[in-house]
């Protein structure tokens, strides 16, 4: 890449730490079912205990193959997290194939991050007809139990929330049948719509920013792209409980750090630890307990 506008992102020799972090993710957020789950846990544990394993490409390709097997066994129900995890383990395997191979880890991590965020932005801004108008988050806040506390903080009471959820998830009247519901309006507090609209634009804006940060030439973005990723992970995954994916993105971000950006390694460690903390003490549940003690545990 030397000579190209995208030069300047060569590896920092952090493959060992990134590999250990990736295995830790597999232990903290186990994946798969049947024999795949224990096999991956066993490999992750072995890789953490025996550092020389992490330097072997066949070790990583075995983990990648098991992660891919999980995708196949669950087909078509796996989401992008499963695919990206397998691809990342394959990438770590490539970085262990020879003396020159680790140099490929940083640019691969950077391009993967850029493409992930560009695809997410494209999907929200252009391909989904009901995202930018706020419909998606208005529906999500009421229907996804993981965001129940946020809906309550937005002014809904539990009864209204459950009635709205039933109506939004019911079989549409056009389909007929005993469980179909006639359409009804969902009366929402002003704060509910405001939060939904904020979530809509915040998410797409920061995803676009992170995408630009990792896809545009480094000389334009080096100063802020990691900060954008850290802000994204700490804000989004503290509320959306998919910290395993957050850790995976952080592992990729860490892998592409250049030596002059060493101070940021601490930032990555802090955000990864913060996500672990939020898993034990979810911010929304904590705030709801503080502000709305009568709402009880969600």
């Amino acid at each position: 890449m030397t000579g190209s506008p995208w030069a300047g992102d060569e590896p920092a020799g952090s493959a060992g730490i990134v590999g250990a972090g990736t295995l830790l993710i597999l232990l903290l957020a186990p994946i798969g079912s049947g024999f795949v789950a224990p096999a991956i846990l066993l490999l992750a544990g072995a890789g953490l205990l025996v550092p020389s394993l992490r330097a072997r490409s066949d070790f990583w390709w075995t983990v990648a193959a098991l992660a891919l097997l999980r995708v196949g066994l669950d087909w078509p129900m796996s989401d992008n997290h499963a695919y990206l995890l397998s691809l990342w383990c394959f990438t770590l395997g490539l970085a262990a194939t020879g003396p020159a191979a680790p140099a490929a880890l940083a640019p691969n991590a950077r391009w993967l991050l850029g493409i992930v965020f560009a695809a997410a932005t494209l999907q929200k801004a252009w391909l989904s007809p009901d995202y930018l108008d706020g419909t998606f988050f208005r529906v999500l806040l009421a229907t996804d139990p993981r965001f129940e506390e946020l809906a309550l903080l937005c002014g809904l009471d539990l009864d209204s929330l459950y009635r709205a959820r039933d109506a939004l998830l019911a079989r549409p009247a056009e389909l007929g049948g005993p469980t179909s519901r006639p359409p009804s309006d969902f009366v929402r507090p002003p704060l509910y719509d405001a939060v939904a609209l904020f979530a809509t634009w915040y998410t797409v804006a920061i995803e676009a920013l992170v995408a630009a940060g990792y896809l545009l030439p480094a000389r334009w973005t080096r100063g802020w792209r990691d900060l954008a990723l850290l802000v994204f992970c700490s804000s989004v995954y503290a509320l959306a409980p998919v910290e395993g994916f957050g850790w995976l993105l952080l592992a990729m971000g860490y892998a592409q750090l250049t030596p002059e950006r060493d101070r940021l390694r601490v930032g990555y460690a802090i955000v990864a630890s913060f996500l672990l903390f939020t898993r034990a003490l979810p911010p929304l549940a904590w705030i709801t307990g503080l502000l709305l003690p009568e709402a009880g545990p969600g």
Binding site: P76, S78, D79, N80, L84, Q123, S128, Y131, G176
Partner: peptide, 22 residues
Amino acid sequence: RLSPWLGGGFGMFATPDERHLA
């Protein structure tokens, strides 16, 4: 008609996708 939430793309958290089978 693969659900946008599934597969190797990035349609999660981009569209409501409540489906019903009759």
